[in-house]
Design a protein around this nucleic acid. Structure first.
Lengths: 341, 341
DNA sequence: TTGTAGGCGTTATCAA
DNA sequence: TTGATAACGCCTACAA
């Protein structure tokens, strides 16, 4: 530690002395509390500016407030999460709240990140794509205000959820592929049984395939999220004796890998295999990908989650479960082909 | 606030009572301080486990220690920063330290993020790709231990730096292009004059072009980091009366956009225009990109920065400036073409 | 409307 | 080797 060599921090006491008022007066101004005259407020604010005073978070924490909210993200590499972060940050911009970001992959476990945040007294927490089950999230929600984003739990009362309609997203993808003549669609899914998101997308895929009279073509391939697994899985699927006519991928990151593997195998999209991704991330629009994808309004999701969390921190105890609508964005990778079947 | 409905936190006092020892004894065990007998330590540790005690960060902060380090990242969308984060996290995994992540784009200014971290008493800070100038970083470093990653300041004594040799990286790119017969290389650079990284890359580009006797082909196009600007810039460059034979892009994110624009214009790489990126991010390896790129060891950079910061927090005051070597990873986008000139 | 005083949980000094 | 206790900066009853 070399704290002693640093300029000591300006305290509320010095602000008060400098302004010729009491400490509590300054505190009230800081917290917008009742019973402060305009002239006193002006004097205090001038003093704060003059001394460049900033409240110490730890001292506030000792009294219960930290003005900090936690945002737990699973994977910094997926640009979809960047949009969520943007949404959260924009919703908090007008408030006194700061967001504390925690990334769970690959160095830290989600639980460790959450506990570290609780140690730092975040006043509430947004869990994005949690790997925990309902009961665990429920227990956590009893400890502090909580919003789960990307986690379907419509019956839970202890926390709020924000999602897109993942079942519908999958249905849109299948419907689109069928409309363009691609009947034998395989779903390239994620090997994480506890994900309610994935479960909903798989359900939507199955249901829409059945609705279209394509039950005999239903085929779900579940693969882990590591790059090597994705590549191996893609090779396997594209090498099958009867190659699927289309692939519906649970994420754009998977879809672009599939495009790459297909290209390496001398296959082109959509001529040899049509491809649809999920998230509509920036890579989809690149000409070399031209990837049809299910769009999720990431920024709106993040904004909504932050708004709900602020409400909960403010005292709301009833649950809210928001479901936004996904939208299919069509591009070349699934365009109708004249000679398809 | 609904704190009052929550189970009150286990304090060090309860741990002490439960173990039948004094508060200071527990504190000493927690901090690995001198003068603790093995038996006392054992009793305390058992009590801690039994009550599931965790120290409150705010209370520690009141006494000066927070065991928290700040990591300021400019842009969550660039996967290169994810590698840095991995490196930092892995270097801190063995320690008591937690990393507090702050993202500056687009919602918050870098200064605001830094101040928020100081309010929370981070014991040190890693600045990645700061937009501040030397004097500002210097002033900040006088307030707390600081390591700048992606910022060339070899003469500064108040903080450490960790970089790759960006001048060399650019030279490698040019040398490779020239060796493969691409002589008229334009550099697609970033419109941010204060970036020492960019300055070094531009310098390397210039010097190597001169060394190869290609001074008359030197051409640097500077474009902002927004997608629209990149696309417009790429169109402009590729539409020039005499199109450059190759493009050296300051970042992979720019390079893949350039590939996209080229494709839209009916140009292919490397036949019509060779392309080299920077960072060797995961997108480079995709077959549809096949992007030659300058590799930076992101995880090692992050690890080194974290190690240096821990040393500074531990009391080191002399400066260290680490420079790692970049490496060119060759792929299709700059492969030699028989009919080139 | 303004001021006083006590306490939040931890660390570190000093005494036993 | 252990334990008692005074801070740290802020918030908030309560008093004036």
């Amino acid at each position: 530690m070399q704290e002693d060599r640093l300029p000591p921090r300006v305290t509320i006491r010095q602000v008060a002395e400098n302004a010729g008022v009491s400490v509590s007066a300054v505190s009230k101004v800081l917290r917008d509390a009742y019973g402060v005259s305009a002239s006193l407020r002006a004097r205090v604010e001038a003093s704060i500016r003059e001394l460049n005073y900033r409240p110490l978070a730890a001292a506030r924490g000792m009294r219960g407030r930290t003005y900090t909210l936690g945002l737990v993200l699973p994977d910094i590499r997926n640009p979809f999460f960047a949009e969520i972060l943007d949404g959260v940050a924009s919703a908090l911009a007008e408030t006194q709240y700061q967001v504390m970001i925690g990334i769970t992959e690959p160095a830290a476990s989600e639980d460790a990140v959450i506990e570290a945040m609780i140690d730092r007294q975040v006043e509430g927490i947004i869990l994005v794509g949690t790997v925990n089950v309902e009961a665990v999230v429920d227990a956590l929600a009893s400890r502090l205000p909580l919003v789960a984003l990307g986690f379907h739990a419509p019956t839970m009362r202890t926390f709020d959820t924000v999602n897109t309609d993942d079942q519908l997203g999958a249905r849109l993808a299948v419907r689109h592929l069928v409309a363009n003549g691609f009947l034998a669609t395989t779903m390239f899914s994620l090997d994480r049984p506890e994900s309610t998101i994935i479960a909903q997308r798989e359900l939507g895929y199955r249901r829409e395939m059945i609705r279209c009279g394509l039950s005999e073509h239903i085929n779900i391939v579940r693969v882990g999220s590591a790059k090597a697994q994705i590549v191996a899985g893609a090779k396997r699927v594209l090498d099958e004796p009867v190659r699927p006519r289309a692939l519906f991928c649970w994420s754009d990151l998977v879809a672009v890998e599939v495009l790459s593997v297909a290209s390496d195998m001398g296959l082109t999209s959509p001529n040899d295999v049509a491809i649809v991704g999920y998230d509509n991330s920036p890579v989809c629009a690149l000409a070399q990908n031209g990837l049809t994808s299910v769009n999720q309004p990431g920024a709106v999701l993040g904004q909504s989650a932050a708004r709900l969390l602020l409400e909960r921190v403010g005292g709301r105890v009833s649950a809210q479960h928001i479901i936004l609508q996904p939208k299919l964005i069509m591009r070349a990778s699934s365009a109708a082909v004249s000679t398809c079947g």
